[in-house]
Design a protein around this nucleic acid. Structure first.
Lengths: 221, 221
DNA sequence: TAGATTGTTAATCGATTAACAATC
DNA sequence: TAGATTGTTAATCGATTAACAATC
């Protein structure tokens, strides 16, 4: 939880991958693992795995490897798996609704608790996921008050590119601390706000480019 | 379309961002742009922008900048915006259905034309997006025949982590050339198949980590 | 021509990986 | 102890960026 050293971005991005893999090992009753086996499963170099872990201290035992349970517990704390993170979807068009319907069913620590839209008649989205929830949708005008009422500090941005920056400014003003950005726009935020881009359409376009231009891409390795 | 030099991965990943930005400029009637303005909009260094463009040849004019229309046309060809890319969703659970519903509405060159699931009673998903389509869902057993019938070479993988690798092997066997992987598993494919990972839950977990450990992350810049 | 901005060289930075001494 | 595997140093690689000569 408290890291003495600064963690490189690249390492931080891999933490959820490690966590997921360790969970699956734990579930399968595997008690012990080494960096080579981890490496084979998640496709990062074994040295990268050891280096990543070592940022958090000496988590393994030389000549032995890593204790799955202990490691899982540790990363669980690092990734705040114990606390519930309430999230708002901003922009309840096709993509926003799709995400509300999905609602991170397999992550117990993430829950979408409200949506916002310019069009306030999109109220009360009936959701039929495993949890059978109903997620309220509010007008964008009520952003600040509704977010604060429920203490929501993470937002999923699924508005059209055109309004992405404008809505971002409102989110920042409302005290949002993290934005999962689905728009193809690179939004501007103050230094205290974190942005994570999810490249959906962009990722698909890149994939098509990679497929069509197989030979031209450097070291696909 | 034909690049003389090999394109670095990082550059290829930025192409759709450039394309999207150029489209918006074109739509706004802007005829001319320079690397500094592009840089400000998309948040990559101006030198990175010029370097990226230069992999495709000398696309600009010194002392002038870039002609928006010409650049847009060029990238449109590079990214195969003219041809329709038919895509299959494999795993029609919450996330898969959500994506079928979404169906890349804003990208005219991408279309989800079929889905697959182990549970074949999930047939005929009624979709009510702008296009009012009905996308058929087949049994995973019919993967090869149905994909080949429609000449689908791109798949979106939205099966549970547990079966991700097994289903991937079937996709490869069926002749799939590109996989947009939503599972938190890093799948193994032969060298001739491209994989693009989309980190949805993973991205959200990373975001939460970044927010909670603001001070500990290196050079968030 | 003078001014502006590209395309590219060279320097820097961050991330990956090979190699191995430390040590369980 | 002998064998195995970590944690870390040093080398490498790829990507970013500063700086500027080329040139429209």
């Amino acid at each position: 939880m408290t890291a003495d050293t600064q963690i490189p971005r690249a390492t931080a991005q891999r933490l959820p991958i490690y966590y997921y893999y360790l969970s699956s090992l734990h579930e399968a009753g595997i008690k012990r693992i080494n960096s080579t086996e981890i490496s084979e499963a998640i496709k990062f170099d074994a040295a990268t795995v050891r280096r990543d872990f070592s940022y958090f201290g000496a988590l393994g035992k030389r000549g032995f490897g890593y204790d799955v349970s202990a490691l899982l517990d540790f990363f669980s704390k690092v990734l705040s798996q114990d606390k519930l993170n309430k999230v708002a979807v901003v922009g309840t068009g096709n993509l926003g609704q799709a995400l509300m319907k999905y609602n991170f069913v397999h992550s117990s620590n993430i829950q979408i608790v409200m949506g916002f839209d310019v069009d306030p008649k999109k109220k009360e989205l009936k959701i039929d996921n495993e949890k059978d929830e109903t997620i309220p949708v509010y007008s964008i005008g009520d952003l600040k008050s509704e977010l604060n009422k429920e203490n929501v500090t993470i937002a999923i941005l699924t508005v059209p590119g055109k309004s992405a920056q404008e809505v971002t400014d409102q989110l920042v003003d409302a005290g949002i601390k993290g934005i999962l950005n689905f728009s193809p726009i690179r939004i501007t935020v103050p230094n205290s706000v974190r942005v994570q881009n999810v490249d959906l359409t962009t990722g698909m376009q890149t994939l098509i480019y990679f497929v069509d231009n197989f030979e031209n891409i450097k070291s696909a390795k």
